[in-house]
């Protein structure tokens, strides 16, 4: 099945280029500003955009993203605006856009309707931090039917059988959780990530793997690219935007991209 996300990551790998997957929350601080921020990230060299859906109970997120998504909600973010954001971003840039969302908003909107609206808006698929493959029957069927990417997580504590399932069922890439914890910058990216990527490769050699959680510097992003297909960076971008708007955000993306093999 065709996956634009996978094509981008594989083209980079084939040309020995590193990949950067960048996160930004839709609606932060407002819908218009989040679209501008996301477009700026893509223009500054993010290979895949991870657009977050603000949610009231984000258990996988650290304080930086919690505060940003809460601000988006306080400013009146509505779920349907995520499709508008995807459309406006994909109209302007060619970067694949994956939506990162906790599961309840999708369940309430209707899994099939959410998927159809996402596809119509030009979105590539979903990253689902609190939906494990075991609970994903409907999403697996719908994403197959529509050809959408679906990114499941693999972690240092996942059994080989669970890594295999995540690797076989993911499309686009597998999100290898670098360390046991929630999103947010860390001084050192855990070596456990290497093991997770190796297990995914072993179970599904054709599958892409990107490493996330705790990556905030150019060196860390370059380091995980040595053994995986991409680095996922989020909190540090949100922080940069908070401190200096689009210009500081663009500068941060450029800083990280400059340190990668491009």
């Amino acid at each position: 099945m065709i996956s634009k996300t996978s094509d981008v990551l594989k083209a980079n790998s084939a040309a020995s280029r590193d990949s950067l997957i960048g996160y930004f929350p839709a609606g932060y601080p407002t819908l218009d500003e989040s679209v501008e921020a996301a477009v700026a990230m893509c223009e500054a060299g993010v290979d895949v955009l991870e657009l977050g859906v603000p949610y009231s109970d984000p258990v996988m997120d650290g304080l930086v993203i919690q505060e940003a998504t809460q601000e988006a909600l306080d400013n009146g973010f509505k779920l349907r605006q995520v499709f508008e954001a995807v459309k406006r971003i994909t109209d302007r840039v060619d970067t694949p856009v994956l939506v990162m969302t906790y599961w309840n908003p999708v369940m309430q909107y209707g899994v099939e309707k959410f998927a159809r609206d996402l596809k119509a808006a030009g979105g590539s698929g979903l990253i689902t931090p609190d939906l494990i493959p075991d609970e994903a029957t409907e999403w697996l069927a719908v994403s197959d039917e529509l050809g959408l990417d679906r990114v499941f997580l693999a972690t240092p504590t996942s059994t080989p059988a669970r890594v295999k399932r995540a690797a076989e069922l993911s499309r686009g890439f597998v999100y290898a959780v670098s360390t046991m914890g929630i999103t947010g910058a860390r001084d050192e990216v855990d070596q456990m990530a290497r093991g997770v990527v190796a297990s995914v490769r072993k179970e599904a050699p054709e599958q892409n793997t990107a490493v996330g959680i705790g990556i905030s510097t150019s060196d860390q992003a370059a380091q995980v690219n040595e053994y995986s297909d991409g680095a996922i960076v989020g909190s540090v971008f949100v922080k940069a935007y908070k401190s200096g708007g689009v210009s500081e955000l663009s500068a941060k993306v450029t800083e990280i991209v400059t340190g990668l093999n491009k």
Binding site: V59, N104, I132, D134, L153, T155, R162, M180
Partner: peptide, 14 residues
């Protein structure tokens, strides 16, 4: 019921 949690917790729940 079920288990709608990050994969990071599945090993501990098992």
């Amino acid at each position: 019921g079920g288990r709608f949690v990050p994969e990071s917790l599945i090993a501990a729940l098992d």
